[in-house]
Amino acid sequence: MKILVCISKTPDTTSKIAFKDNNTKFEEAGVQWIINPYDEWYSLVRAIELKEKDPSVIIHLVTVGTADAEPVIRKALALGGDEAIRINATSDDSFYVGSQIAEIAKQGGYDLIFTGKETIDYNGSAIGGIIAELLDVPYVSLATKFDLNGDVATVTREIDGGEEVAEIKLPLVVSCAKGVAEQRIPNMRGIMAARTKPLKAVEPAAVDALTTIASYELPPAKAGVKLIPADNVAELVRLLHEEAKVI
């Protein structure tokens, strides 16, 4: 059983979001980089749990990024996983990124590919679906529970207003959301072991990006809260009715 876990580096949740070069680039100065929380908490940890149950499971991590992504990949290796592959490229186009990972997946013959439900920077929720299509395998998006019995996965996923449980024979791509696993903290042994785990850099396949980011913008600032005295709830209702016109 070989599992490929897709890892993305993202700015920490509490980072100040600002742009530079005429609003065409994200301002990285002072930003703390972390493993995209959905990649870390849900997909990576679930893969590690599967390996703990069955030590013959092999976990590879993959990221698309330049050398500055390596500290984040090492952090992921400190949690678990046998080795990591870094595709030496940077892109904000989901087709480009998905194609690169699909290429690695084809070469590696993985039974299972995990992604997070989205990254917290681009909020694309796209990479898993693109990989699955390029490999022509089933895709379960927004999984909240994942179990494996031989080569059949039992996956629960979010649907509008509820959930659905399905059984699917591997190979399979799954995007993982809350519920699949619980967040873990790496221990000292893991951090030490991660230093010597193989981290291989490979050059990207020739793929054309299909989108480019022209510019960024920040939402208009909020006008500020209008406080209404607690003993005058009728005034709030009046404002919602007459000013905001939402009720």
């Binding site: 186009d93 989901s94 087709f95 998905g98 194609s99 909020n123 694309g124 929720s125 796209a126 990479i127 898993g128 679906g129 693109i130 699955a132 299509e133 390029l134 895709y139 998006s141 927004l142 996923r157 979010e158 649907i159 509008d160 995007s175 299909l210 989108t211």
Partner: peptide
């Protein structure tokens, strides 16, 4: 939920640029 499952696959299948 439906669009998140479909749009990326359809985009990849059509080699279409995708904005979600």
């Amino acid at each position: 939920q439906t669009g998140k499952a479909l749009a990326p696959r359809v985009a990849a299948s059509l080699k279409a640029g995708l904005v979600t």
